[in-house]
């Protein structure tokens, strides 16, 4: 059982890392990745939502009729998101303002409903929690990678600390929306190459 839990947890971090492998949840991943601190904030919020929704859905999995399951799942997910929204508004107000509509939009993040549908409704609570935690952290990890590239090359800093020399002009294109698409495409291509190399070994 313990081995199974570890396996369900770690698959979300590399083998099935949602944004980079399946292009799931990329809307918010691209939108908030202009700075590392914003990416981290949204990542933590998503981890909480995936964990909570997976656990609750796994708990009610035998009570919900198949036909109305999507509506039930969506209500559970929305409840988790409302909790995150209220907590953020109360304790992390500046972050709440910066992330704006992306906090309520966690409801329609494909990863959350995807895990509910593909995993939590068929598996016991402990496994679902491990799966939710892994998938949420995988999302956070992808976000951090994209945000690091964009912040370092775009504004010459990482987490607000200057890392490139003072005269660095900043590659502004990466901070704009089109830059996000391009950098994400390049990242996916790089990931394809690396995975293929690893498979060959």
């Amino acid at each position: 059982m313990a081995a199974r839990i570890v396996q369900e947890f770690t698959k979300g971090l590399w083998k099935e890392i949602a944004p980079l492998r399946f292009a799931l949840g990329i809307c918010s991943a691209l939108a908030v990745s202009t700075r590392v601190d914003n990416a981290l904030g949204l990542g933590i919020a998503v981890v909480f939502v995936t964990c909570m929704s997976n656990v609750l859905i796994s708990l009610v999995r035998n009570l919900v009729p198949d036909k109305v399951r999507i509506a039930v799942f969506i209500s559970i997910i929305a409840t988790a998101v409302v909790i995150v929204e209220l907590v953020m508004q109360a304790y992390f107000y500046p972050l709440f303002l910066v992330l704006g509509i992306w906090i309520p939009l966690i409801v329609v993040n494909c990863i959350v409903l995807g895990r509910a549908e593909a995993f939590a409704r068929k598996n016991p609570v402990a496994l679902s929690l491990a799966d939710g935690l892994g998938m949420g952290l995988g999302f956070t990890l992808s976000l951090l990678v994209i945000a690091s590239i964009r912040e370092v090359l775009g504004s010459g800093s990482w987490l607000g600390i200057a890392v490139l020399p003072d005269g660095y002009p900043g590659f502004g294109f990466l901070l704009r929306p089109p830059g996000a698409f391009v950098i994400f495409g390049v990242l996916l291509a790089a990931m394809n190459v690396v995975s293929k190399r690893l498979e060959k070994r």
């Binding site: 292009a23 089109p178 830059g179 996000a180 698409f181 495409g185 996916l188 291509a189 394809n192 190459v193």
Partner: peptide, 13 residues
């Protein structure tokens, strides 16, 4: 390496 999603993203950019 670019086929499928990666080239779609770059095109979107």
């Amino acid at each position: 390496a670019l086929q499928g999603v990666p080239i779609t993203m770059i095109t979107a950019g």
